[in-house]
């Protein structure tokens, strides 16, 4: 299972990176979203995979009696999903506002912070 997941994660990363290398901000955003999923799956796979047994202790017991899925990566990923969603929303709104202000969705055209042909800084004191 880990083998199949590794290949799966590799494909996800490749697609996400390909999208993020684009100049179009919407494609970059889609890439970021897929990238988040790929990272989560990586954490999940690194914690090893157990099928279909959630890490929940049965009512009658103090500790789980069978091998369960690893709870630690799940706890990490759970919060990561929510946070990556809120950042995704932030990026989306940022892209939206940038488009409104600059009238372009091409990252080459977004040169407010680093304008082209910037003059030499002053050489005096």
């Amino acid at each position: 299972m880990e083998v199949a997941l590794s290949v799966f994660v590799g494909i996800f990363f490749a697609v996400a990176i390909y999208l993020m290398l684009s100049k179009h901000i919407i494609r970059i955003l889609l890439g970021v979203s897929i990238f988040g999923n790929a990272v989560n799956l990586t954490i999940f796979t690194v914690g090893r995979v157990v099928r279909e047994v959630p890490p929940i202790i049965p009512e009658a017991l103090q500790t789980p009696d069978t091998i369960t899925a690893n709870p630690l990566p799940q706890a990490l990923i759970l919060t990561a999903i929510v946070i990556s969603f809120s950042f995704f929303a932030f990026l989306l709104v940022l892209a939206f506002r940038t488009y409104q202000e600059l009238g372009t969705d091409d990252t080459d055209g977004m040169r407010v912070a680093e304008p082209e042909g910037e003059p030499l800084p002053p050489l005096g004191y």
Binding site: E2, T42, L72
Partner: peptide, 29 residues
């Protein structure tokens, strides 16, 4: 992108091939 994806996949495969230290997870369980 393809190289990065392959590299990350290989890394993941390599990591899952080393023995797993479940100490922390066992503590929580």
């Amino acid at each position: 992108a393809g190289t990065c994806g392959a590299a990350l996949g290989l890394m993941l495969l390599r990591v899952t091939q080393v023995p797993f230290n479940a100490e922390l997870s066992e503590f929580f369980a």
